[in-house]
Structures are given as structure tokens and as C-alpha cells.
Simulated assay, not measured.
Amino acid sequence: MDVLMTLGDGAQVFRFAVDTAAYQSLSRRTEWRWPAQDRLWSEPARQFTGRGTDEITIEGVILPAFRGGLQQMKAMRELADAALKDGSAARPLMLTTGYGDVLGEWVITGLEEEQPVIGPSGAPLEQRFRLTLAAYARDTA
């Protein structure tokens, strides 16, 4: 199985792979805060106040009849809901690319699902997903 990316670690891990939940695109948006202060008879002044949010959006397609089955979307939701089940504090998830680049700790902030093709039994033959992640910054103090 060609793994494109993993989210999580240990017992709680989701693998995005070529033959299961393959993603077609990954976009990342990082912000830096430079608020403007208006000045009389001059251009606004800007001051760097720190790094802003860092978000990744992963879009992909699952073909349940091909490989991986219908449980893949459920597995993504369970990974996001893990803290709700065992009563423990929510924790961030490690994000690692298939080529070994560790992207750090992230939290799931959204999951969208679309089922554009439905089979005769009502089960989806195709599932499209959009997973939104936000970087988790640990306190340094």
C-alpha cells in the first residue's frame, strides 16, 4: 500500500493511501500578523505581532467498492471524536507525509463528505471528502 500521508499515531492513526482514501489535492494557508495603525498625513504603519493561523485542507475521493470499504469516512470522524469516547482530554494528531516529512501536530477542525454516486442498495459508490486541519501550537511556558 502506497501511503500518501498519516494522521495520528499509535492505535489512533488514519492512513491516506493510493488504494484507499487517496487525496487529489492538499492546500496550506499560513498567516503572519502585521496589523496596521493609521497615522495622520502618512501611510499606515505596520507592526509584526506574531504568526497567525496555519491550516491544511485535504481533498480526496474514496471508492468504497474498490478498496477500503465504507468505513473510511467513519474512521476519520472517529479520529476527530476520540476524546469524546474515552473521556480524556483532546489531543493533537501528528501529521507525516508519505515521504517522511513530519509536519508537526494538527487538530481536525472540519470534515465534509459528498456522495455523488449512489449504488442500487443506497450505498455510495464514490465519496468525496474535504478534511480541514489547523496547526496545534504547544505553550512554551
Score class of each variant (00 low, 15 high):
121 S>N: 14
96 T>M: 13
52 G>I: 08
119 G>S: 06
51 R>Y: 04
46 R>A: 05
46 R>K: 12
123 A>P: 02
75 A>N: 15
133 L>W: 05
43 E>H: 09
65 A>H: 12
11 A>I: 00
114 E>W: 04
34 W>S: 05
64 P>Q: 14
137 A>G: 04
125 L>G: 11
117 V>N: 02
123 A>D: 13
88 S>N: 13
37 Q>K: 08
21 A>C: 11
15 R>C: 11
116 P>H: 01
1 M>N: 06
116 P>D: 07
77 R>I: 03
97 T>E: 08
11 A>P: 12
54 D>L: 10
81 D>S: 15
19 D>P: 06
138 R>W: 06
62 I>N: 11
99 Y>C: 08
21 A>M: 04
92 P>V: 06
94 M>R: 14
118 I>C: 12
104 G>S: 09
39 R>D: 12
37 Q>E: 08
8 G>H: 02
93 L>M: 14
98 G>L: 04
75 A>K: 14
138 R>V: 04
73 M>Y: 12
120 P>R: 08
24 Q>N: 10
130 R>D: 08
7 L>T: 09
78 E>G: 15
8 G>D: 05
126 E>H: 02
131 L>N: 05
87 G>W: 10
11 A>L: 09
102 V>A: 10
105 E>L: 15
32 W>R: 01
17 A>S: 09
126 E>K: 15
3 V>Q: 00
25 S>A: 08
75 A>I: 04
52 G>V: 07
